[in-house]
């Protein structure tokens, strides 16, 4: 029992930075939904069942614009296809997680991924339980934020322009932490370079898929160098 308490505590601590981001971004989502006439229960439904930050923002436009179901499906595919990478990364980690596994997979967002992809867990923290609690905490923050946003959305307004920079800041922080955790910077540089080049070629709305393809290809080409160094 002591062990599980320690695990919950550790998972909560790890999730605090996400709490800030998720409650702010979740509230932003709830406020926007409210402004389009979708009350907090719509935000609750979507945050529970979709649980994908940037896609939910896109979905507000789809809802408000009365998009067809097919175009909604295609849009979701484009925006969320990057999640395939998270699954591939977590194949090993989420193996043998038993009954937790379906939920862990459902809750594998960008932010949750950032906490489970390379955890340096101290002794006394149970890995699989850590995955579960981090996922649950994050999901809760996101739902709570969006419901709160939906409720207070029409009560008061403040100038929130730029608040979405929290997302950028979060990814930059994780990038810095990952950078400091290893001497091998080729994968990180590959990600940045391929994305930048594809952004220049294809523009902001179409670069994500070319970026993912070139990143995959480049990493596979670099396999000899990278694995040679890693296996010592």
């Amino acid at each position: 029992m002591k062990k599980s308490k320690e695990t919950i505590k550790y998972a909560f601590k790890a999730s605090i930075p996400i709490m800030a981001g998720y409650i702010v971004l979740g509230m932003g989502f709830g406020v926007l939904m409210e402004s389009k006439g979708y009350g907090w229960w719509w935000s609750l439904l979507m945050s529970l069942t979709v649980y994908a930050g940037s896609m939910q923002y896109v979905a507000i436009d789809l809802l408000a614009g009365g998009a067809t179901l097919i175009s909604a499906a295609l849009m979701t595919l484009l925006v969320n296809i990057r999640h395939i990478f998270y699954g591939i990364t977590m194949l090993e980690g989420y193996k043998d997680t038993g009954a937790k596994k379906p939920y862990l997979i459902c809750a594998l967002t960008d932010e949750t991924f950032s906490l489970v992809c390379s955890p340096n867990l101290p002794k006394g923290v149970e890995r699989k339980a850590y995955y579960l609690f981090v996922s649950l905490f994050n999901h809760f923050y996101w739902v709570a934020g969006s419901v709160l946003g939906g409720i207070i959305g029409n009560v008061f307004t403040f100038n929130t322009a730029g608040v979405d920079f929290a997302m950028t800041a979060l990814f930059v922080v994780i990038f810095v932490e990952q950078w400091e955790s290893t001497k091998q910077h080729i994968p990180a540089l590959t990600g940045v370079l391929c994305s930048l080049v594809m952004l220049l070629i294809f523009g902001p709305s179409d670069f994500l898929i070319p970026a993912m393809i070139t990143i995959t290809a480049a990493l596979l080409l670099e396999r000899k160098i990278l694995e040679g160094g890693a296996s010592e």
Binding site: F171, Q178, T190, V192, L208, A211, L219
Partner: peptide, 28 residues
């Protein structure tokens, strides 16, 4: 069974993806 190259990708992708996400949030 997970092919070896997929396991390799699982190891190096997190670093590359975080770089991609930074660019993604700054795309506009």
């Amino acid at each position: 069974k997970t092919p070896k190259w997929i396991l390799y990708m699982g190891k190096v992708l997190p670093f590359a993806i975080m770089g991609m996400l930074v660019v993604y949030t700054l795309k506009n």
